[in-house]
Design a protein around this nucleic acid. Structure first.
Length: 435
RNA sequence: GUGACCGUAGCUCAGUCGGUUAGAGCACCUGGUUGUGGUCCAGGGGGUCGGGGGUUCGAAUCCCCUCGGUCACCCCA
């Protein structure tokens, strides 16, 4: 093959495109019914915009270029900076809370792996201007609503939750000073990738003695079902009211999604800008990378020059969720657009009327296809009609001269004669009853 | 960006020790036959074996480079 799609990108043939549309439809439908409004921004932004949040180091992860005036530009790798910019620009006039969603494509110059490509589409749900755990819970509820919509259950996937304030409070009581919290979170995130003694050593640098480091590690490995906060508190053996987590827990119950959720203090979410709730959605087997991730980021809008604005949201990429649904056999067979009518001609005289009849049906809004083949074999033509999953076949023979055709219901196999003027009604089933 | 493994038709794969013109099933296309739906029959398109270079009388097969995929790092916004 001489020309191939660039590394980490995909071509969408009709079948893949149909799936993509199916997924997008589900994202949009769920977003809208939960009260979110769709937005979007430019595919590329000023390079500087991405440095604001992530620093200069981000540049190597971006596809970037100079425009003809020498200005640094980058193809968007995420939506949050654009969102922050949009909110900051109209902060005074937007009604609160702001509930927005989008499903744009992003590009990141990373090494592709399973579930991780260089171009992908991501569903973003964000809720701004409401500093209440209700917002956290509603955002998480929206994710659960989607999971249900595509046929997943709480036995397939789990929402793993943590809370930055809670973990920070625990770490503080174990001896980590406030100014080393960011490092402590980073260590927490890396704990599975480094040796035990290295972990202990690095923990010591942060002010944790051997005993505290061990407890720290233990706490982060335990999982607690929603509602199990008292157990969590006991096992911590640390006096902390866990107020932040407790309020969230109440709301998760109020939204009826507690059985999808589990507390896992080992969930950190890479970047430092999360301020409260953090969560990831994982397949329960744990085999795949996270399906979605998000949390509360109350400082970020300020960082982009807006007024102090509490915010919570998440992103879900199209790649992992598609792999998960494929693995679980949850991709429906019927994602391709289905013709209402497939018209076919059994004689040369009838073939001459085919186009006119189809155009007429199309003008009445019916998805109509016909055969381009010269064969007059009814068997072959019906096979063609079945192959594209048409609902009805319209069979033309010499009776077309008397304005009569046969209509065949391709699901039931029933067939009956219809005058061409009654054709559209024939498909509703009413005309048949009158016969 | 670093390291490891992989790469034969759209898909799943066969291809002996390096040896003639690279194969099968499915899929796709055309027509014939049963006038009524994954039947049967006949025929067809499609591969410079991912690409380039090297070794050799001769390379899908051996060596190097490159592109792509997968896995682990990095990162995961």
């Amino acid at each position: 093959m001489k020309l191939q799609a660039p590394k980490g990108t995909r071509d969408f043939y009709p079948r893949e495109m149909a799936w993509q549309n199916f997924l997008f439809d589900a994202w949009r439908k769920v977003s809208v019914r939960n009260g979110f409004e769709q937005v979007d921004g430019p595919v590329f932004e000023s390079l500087d915009l991405y440095k604001v949040k992530s620093g200069d180091g981000i540049v190597s992860e971006l596809f970037h270029f100079e425009d003809r005036g020498g200005r640094g530009m980058a193809i968007r790798p995420e939506f949050t900076p654009t969102l922050a910019r949009m909110v900051a620009d109209r902060a005074a006039s937007l009604p609160r809370p702001i509930k927005w969603f989008c499903m744009p494509n992003f590009c990141r110059a990373e090494r592709p792996q399973r579930g991780r490509l260089r171009e992908f589409w991501q569903w973003n749900i964000d809720m701004l201007g409401l500093d209440s755990p209700i917002a956290d819970a509603e955002v998480i509820y929206t994710a659960v609503d989607f999971l249900r919509e595509v046929g997943l259950t709480s036995s397939h996937v789990r929402i793993k939750l943590s809370h930055r304030q809670t973990v920070q409070s625990i770490l503080g009581k174990l001896g980590v000073p406030l100014d080393r919290m960011t490092e402590a979170f980073a260590l927490l995130d890396r704990r599975d990738k480094i040796e035990e003694d290295q972990f202990a050593q690095q923990a010591a640098v942060l002010g944790l003695d051997a005993d505290s480091a061990k407890r720290f590690d233990e706490v982060c490995r335990m999982k607690y079902r929603a509602g199990g906060l008292d157990k969590l508190r006991e096992s911590l053996a640390i006096h902390d009211t866990l107020d932040d987590l407790r309020q969230l827990d109440e709301q998760l119950h109020a939204f009826g999604i507690a059985d999808w959720c589990e507390y896992d203090l080992g969930i950190v979410r890479g970047l430092a800008y999360y301020t409260g709730t953090v969560f990831e959605i994982h397949e329960t087997t744990g085999a795949m990378r996270a399906i979605a991730g998000g949390g509360r980021y109350d400082r970020l809008i300020e960082l982009f020059g807006g007024p102090p604005t509490p915010a919570v949201g998440f992103g879900m990429g199209d790649v992992v969720i598609s792999l998960v649904l494929f693995d679980k056999g949850l991709i429906p067979e019927t994602i391709m657009p289905r013709p209402d009518v497939f018209a076919l001609a059994l004689t040369d005289a009838a073939a001459k009327q085919l186009a006119a009849l189809c155009i007429d049906l199309r003008r009445q809004g019916l998805h109509t296809r016909f055969s381009y083949r010269s064969t007059r074999s009814l068997g072959k033509l019906l096979k063609e009609a079945t192959a594209c999953n048409a609902r009805y076949a319209v069979i033309l023979d010499d009776k077309i001269m008397e304005r009569q055709v046969e209509v065949k219901d391709l699901e039931s196999g029933e067939q009956w004669a219809v005058g061409i003027d009654q054709l559209p009604q024939a498909f509703s089933g009413r005309a048949r009853d009158e016969d």
